[in-house]
Design a protein around this nucleic acid. Structure first.
Lengths: 185, 185
DNA sequence: AAAAACAGAACGAACGTTCGGTTTGTCCTG
DNA sequence: CAGGACAAACCGAACGTTCGTTCTGTTTTT
């Protein structure tokens, strides 16, 4: 049971919801279990949150913010295009590797039909504005952004999700080959 | 309410479960709604299936079989490597386009922690045996199969999932570029 | 006439939520 | 610095609802 600062159990409740949803799915995530895992009583849970759904939304929002921050860490628009691409690729892989539970939660959240009030791909979009297609003065192939995104960061997400750990050399090769695939000729 | 042959409601129940799960998630998929949507009473549902979970497993298995069949339609191991690749790529895209609900169900099923008794990627694996990496006498880059799979059929799955409909010319270009990315130099 | 398919009311269990009361923290006043 | 007052944090039993499942009986098929 992860205890947090100041005797406040709000974060512990969010952590518990994240864990339980990832382990067992939104079905089979009863409040009684959230209470047990977080070390909070059902009473205090409803002191912090109005409903179960509000907890889930809060986990979503907290994770979305964390992702946006870590994605763009150490990136600046002045970087050379290829370097910037490989840098964010690595950031992205690192994030998903370090936060596999958060990643699974986000995917399940979107798939299960919860309302995504704020764009879950905000981080990706922000980055891709740097690399607009050549027709718009960018350096990438003249394909729709969504396709380019799936070929690059979408691929990273799924590679990081795998239980296998890839050799750094292989990952580097994949990243470089990907860059070759999407950059304008 | 899709009615089926022979007055048998088994299929209608599976269809209803598929629809409801995709629309609302495994949570919020009560039997009462399955009964209403399928036009079957709760009594007859439990005549055909032992439990709610068994219905879900049956939907999973039915979809998995359908997918395996359609993936490899018109494919034979004697085809030229590049042609075979592009052919199955197109099959794959078509399948996901024609069966978006089935696709979402399968993803949610795997994510929500249901036991995958039979390999959900059986179709992909069967196809990829044709294209083993060069180190094993194949024609693809010497990367792990899982990576190659994500770069190719995994990408198709994502593209087909998008609400946007891509131009056939663009798709063809993406397919060809993908082949260039994964084939051995 | 026997079996399979079907209907829908009913049941117990489990769920999300509420409620009354207790502890802990904070800050004001003398 | 003591003490009292107010609020926020907290607990867990209890409530009403809804869920998955069962049961008894009816209709349809073979």
């Amino acid at each position: 049971m992860p205890s947090k600062r100041k005797g406040n159990k709000r974060d512990a409740i969010l952590d518990a919801m994240l864990d339980v949803v990832v382990e067992r799915g939104f079905h089979e995530a009863p409040m009684s279990l959230i209470a047990e895992r977080s070390g909070a009583s059902t009473g205090v849970i409803y002191h912090h949150f109005a409903s179960k759904e509000e907890i889930i939304q809060a986990v979503y929002e907290r994770t979305r913010l964390l992702k946006t921050e870590e994605f763009l860490k150490g990136y600046s628009p002045e970087m050379d295009a290829r370097d910037a691409f490989l840098h964010v690729w690595a950031n992205c892989y690192e994030f998903y590797r370090k936060h596999p539970r958060e990643m699974r939660f986000m995917e399940q959240y979107a798939l299960a039909g919860f309302p995504c009030v704020s764009d879950p791909k905000a981080a990706e979009n922000q980055f891709f504005r740097r690399f607009q297609s050549r027709a718009k003065g960018g350096v990438l192939k003249d394909w729709p952004q969504e396709i380019l995104q799936e070929m690059t960061l979408g691929l990273v997400a799924r590679l990081a999700q795998s239980p296998r750990k890839w050799k750094p050399a292989t990952l580097r090769e994949v990243a470089e080959q990907t860059w070759e695939s999407v950059k304008a000729d």
